[in-house]
């Protein structure tokens, strides 16, 4: 059918060139040029990050000693902690930071505050953002964890493993539909 474009968010049909979807009001300007060709692609553009059930973040504060942060990461079996200041996310500290910044000097730094080693101002996404954006950030930026905010407040974290789990689940679902 020519002259129509399917909204990738709600799958309603719109007149080609429409700026917004008639049904859901999502902007079509950046998307109307092409229609997702597979159902997995459509899933990525429709599903929001909340669907990944972001895990509750483990938080520390700027002055938490490095040694305590490392213990927390090992005990809680997590790959990163969020550094918060007065309830606001100000940094992230991951296994990769430990490897790159502490390494064999770790014993010297155990009493230092984590603020000296964290990655400040991490990239974040909102629970309402599309999963495609998380994939974009992780794949292009090389991140393994992304803090998730709800209305600007830290509520969770998603990992590349969550994304892998989601993708394989959607791919399997697409295969089932094809029979």
């Amino acid at each position: 059918m020519t002259g129509t474009v399917v909204c990738p968010f709600c799958e309603a049909e719109n007149i080609e060139g429409a700026d917004e979807c008639e049904a859901c009001g999502e902007a079509l300007t950046d998307l109307s040029v092409r229609i997702p060709t597979t159902s997995v692609e459509a899933d990525l553009l429709r599903d929001r990050i909340e669907r990944l059930w972001p895990k509750s973040p483990s938080t520390v504060t700027l002055d938490t000693p490095v040694g305590d942060v490392l213990k927390k990461m090992v005990d809680a079996k997590i790959g990163c902690v969020m550094v918060v200041d007065k309830g606001k996310l100000v940094g992230i500290f991951s296994e990769r930071d430990a490897l790159m910044k502490l390494n064999t000097d770790a014993p010297k730094f155990l009493k230092r505050p984590i603020s000296q080693f964290m990655t400040p101002d991490p990239v974040t996404l909102e629970t309402s953002d599309k999963i495609a954006f998380a994939l974009h950030k992780m794949n292009v930026g090389g991140y393994r964890h992304i803090p998730i905010l709800f209305e600007g407040k830290l509520v969770g974290v998603i990992s590349i493993r969550d994304i892998l789990g989601y993708l394989t689940e959607r791919i399997a679902a697409a295969a089932r539909r094809q029979g």
Partner: peptide, 28 residues
């Protein structure tokens, strides 16, 4: 894991690589 995700994304590069860097940046 990164390599596998990259492999999966290769099947729909436009969906992932053509996104604006900020979700809010898509012009209304």
């Amino acid at each position: 894991v990164h390599g596998i995700v990259r492999y999966l994304v290769d099947d729909f590069p436009e969906t992932v690589y053509n996104l604006p860097p900020d979700p809010k940046a898509a012009p209304r």
